[in-house]
Design a protein around this nucleic acid. Structure first.
Lengths: 104, 104
DNA sequence: CAGCTAAATGACTATATAGTCATATACTCT
DNA sequence: AGAGTATATGACTATATAGTCATTTAGCTG
């Protein structure tokens, strides 16, 4: 049970960062190579590579080589379920939240 | 959409840390006061308090005062859905993973 | 009010993280 | 082999994080 907690935390932490979230969003409809990902999310190639590797070793992404290119994909469909649930929470919760009061 | 990403990341980050995960697990069957939480997870009162406050402002927990005691609870039932999904991923993925090879 | 209990916070330390720039590695094609 | 493209990594900086210990704040009760 101890190890399960660490592993769960690792997955959730991998998802809990804006740049990585952008990557997850971009990978939603299938695998993409790094050369497609970093321009899409407007981050440096090296930074993107680090985040991809981080999510790979957290068990969030999978990797496939094809010649020069390396394709990353979301490893478990449930990851997208998680994202959908969190999005739902945010959208429902966002009304009346201090966070949005600055937009007023 | 920009703000949504930040907010989603904040929630997921709040869940992605072992000590906070222990708290979430402990709060699974209902609200508890700080004085129950920190002995249950075997962490210092001050450290526990910080994590609780962090999850509160991330929108993961809610807080209720009752006299001297302050009761925290999981704010959205969906948080538990997220935890269940992640647990399922971990349990399925854990076989044949380097992480578990050290136990061999 | 005095003393008690519960929770939060200040000050600090050690470590982790995100990001950048430059470079190295790996593969392809001529 | 050499040029070119795709990805990863070393070295570094700045900031964030988790944790500890000591103290403060808040509310209760005698």
């Amino acid at each position: 049970m101890r190890d399960l907690i660490e592993y769960r935390a690792e997955i959730l932490k991998a998802l809990g960062q804006p740049t990585r979230l952008k990557i997850i969003d971009f990978l939603r409809d299938g695998e993409r190579c790094v050369c497609e990902i970093y321009p899409a999310i407007a981050e440096e190639q090296s930074n993107t590579s680090r985040h991809l590797n981080m999510m790979l070793s957290a068990g969030v992404l999978s990797r496939r080589k094809d010649g020069l290119k390396i394709y990353y994909a979301i490893k478990h469909p449930e990851i997208l379920e998680v994202m959908d649930i969190v999005t739902r929470i945010v959208k429902r919760d966002i009304t009346g939240r201090h966070r949005l009061l600055k937009a007023a």
